[in-house]
């Protein structure tokens, strides 16, 4: 049954999620933007470029993949919005991250349901890389 408490709960979840997202997106956005103003970003971009090319992504997008997999999707969102990437790059990154993200936290869920966390992490990373490489060729 949909009641007033449904709406209240929805609004509460809205506030909560927005706050959780803000706590991550704002610091990540600031740090990544700062990197852009220093030579560090150039260095990271050039260092990662050969590997990222296979995925159809610029070198600096490696930051997005690392943040998304180690932290969560919100961190990746903060980095993506700061980097101003192309639509193709964002689509590839989004697909890769939706398949594989928040690995430390989510593999804990697998463990509780009796499935090997290491197996799941490896599986998701491989799938994510394959999907990225495939989309690079298709898009």
């Amino acid at each position: 049954m949909i009641t007033v408490s449904t709406v209240k709960r929805g609004l509460h979840k809205g506030f909560y999620t927005t706050w959780e997202l803000t706590k991550v997106v704002v610091p990540v956005y600031i740090v990544v933007t700062f990197l852009k103003y220093t030579p560090a970003m150039d260095f990271i971009a050039r260092f990662c470029e050969p590997a990222m090319k296979i995925l159809g992504l610029p070198g600096e997008a490696s930051i997005v993949l690392v943040l998304g997999n180690l932290l969560n999707i919100y961190a990746a969102i903060g980095a993506i919005s700061s980097l101003h990437l192309s639509a193709k790059a964002i689509t590839i990154l989004a697909t890769m991250l939706l398949i594989s993200h928040s690995l430390p936290i989510e593999s804990a869920v697998s463990k509780k349901t009796g499935v090997s966390p290491l197996l799941m992490v490896g599986f998701r990373l491989v799938m994510s890389l394959l999907a990225g490489a495939a989309l690079n060729l298709l898009l």
């Binding site: 929805g10 609004l11 979840k13 809205g14 999620t17 927005t18 997202l21 803000t22 997106v25 704002v26 956005y29 600031i30 933007t33 969102i77 903060g78 919005s81 700061s82």
Partner: peptide, 17 residues
């Protein structure tokens, strides 16, 4: 930039939730 991102996300999150 960071505030803009949060505002866009909030505009999606509220109706969705």
């Amino acid at each position: 930039g960071s505030l803009e991102s949060v505002a866009i996300m909030a505009a999606i999150i509220f109706p969705l939730m």
